[in-house]
């Protein structure tokens, strides 16, 4: 790779997803993050009731993300060849697990009732 600038990276991602889709995804992920921060501020912290439920979805998100990437790239777990491959798989799993936890927590916090005041 000659010179990896942010502009190059954005140009490549625009090509992967299409400009409209890429920026839509950026906006959606931004909205989810902002909503998460907003409910944290509203509730003055993390509500353990929702967090526990949200965490249950994490393994699901992790497995789904890894399975999806393997399917999308016509490959299998047996193709993992070196340490960097395991690191990338771990990142994908982390992104999938973390992402779904975040989404799940935020959805519960917005749709559900406000948690009881801390005692």
């Amino acid at each position: 790779m000659k010179e990896l600038t942010l502009a190059t990276l954005i140009a490549v991602f625009e090509e992967i997803y299409g400009r409209g889709l890429f920026w839509s995804l950026v906006v959606i992920s931004g909205i989810i993050t902002v909503a998460f921060v907003a409910v944290l501020i509203r509730d003055r912290g993390i509500a353990s009731r929702w967090l526990v439920r949200a965490e249950i979805t994490a393994p699901l998100g992790a497995v789904a993300a890894v399975w999806f990437v393997l399917w999308f790239t016509n490959s299998h777990l047996a193709d993992i060849g070196g340490p960097i491959d395991w690191i990338v798989i771990a990142w994908i799993a982390l992104a999938g697990g973390g992402g779904l936890t975040l989404l799940s927590y935020t959805a519960q916090a917005i749709l559900g009732h406000a948690p009881r005041a801390k005692t």
């Binding site: 991602f13 997803y17 950026v26």
Partner: peptide, 10 residues
């Protein structure tokens, strides 16, 4: 590709 979005990008 749509589904791949955030994961690969991040």
């Amino acid at each position: 590709r749509a589904l791949m979005g955030l994961g690969a990008g991040a």
